[in-house]
């Protein structure tokens, strides 16, 4: 993947970073997805979970590093070969956490389509989480298109 610089609208993205960082913090001690391992070997399950958690935290660290002091000057994030896959996975983890924490009441169809029905009333937290989810999904689409141009929705 060639290096890609994406200029984001600071006024739009900066307010979403608090909810994104909070979701990432939630994920430090827990996996975004329950690994559903066979229950007959606790030691094996613990080791499996520990390794997944280490990988998840590594990815989240790479992702959050995008939004450093420099980002708040020019609003640019740089995507390249080393960071694209960790960022893709981290976006997925954060989106899954946002769903668990805020968005589940909206229903799966709303999340899949990315459109909130006009009659649906959102709380302030749900509005921020939904906007963060749409932002992260858009970032994922951008990265997937660069990594795998044949992948179409």
């Amino acid at each position: 993947m060639k290096r890609v610089e994406v200029k984001l609208n600071l006024a739009v993205v900066a307010p979403l970073l608090d909810v994104i960082r909070a979701a990432a913090d939630d994920l430090r001690p827990m996996l975004a997805v329950d690994p559903r391992l066979p229950a007959n070997d606790a030691e094996f399950a613990a080791e499996w979970t520990r390794e997944l958690l280490a990988a998840q935290n590594s990815d989240l660290g790479r992702f959050l590093a995008l939004f450093n002091a420099e980002f708040f000057v020019d609003g640019v994030i740089a995507l390249d070969t080393p960071n694209s896959e960790p960022i893709l996975r981290a976006c997925s983890a954060v989106r899954l956490r946002l769903r668990e924490k805020y968005l589940r009441p909206l229903g799966d169809e709303t999340l899949e389509t990315g459109e909130v029905p006009p009659d649906k009333k959102l709380t302030a937290n749900q509005r921020r989480a939904f906007a963060a989810d749409v932002f992260l999904a858009t970032l994922q689409e951008l990265i997937v298109q660069h990594l795998d141009p044949t992948a179409l929705e």
Binding site: L88, S92, R95, L96, L111, E112, E141, V144, L147, D148
Partner: peptide
């Protein structure tokens, strides 16, 4: 799951 994008899932399988 209702979160992961179709294009993302295709890419992961590949």
């Amino acid at each position: 799951d209702p979160v992961n994008l179709m294009s993302y899932v295709v890419m992961v399988f590949k």
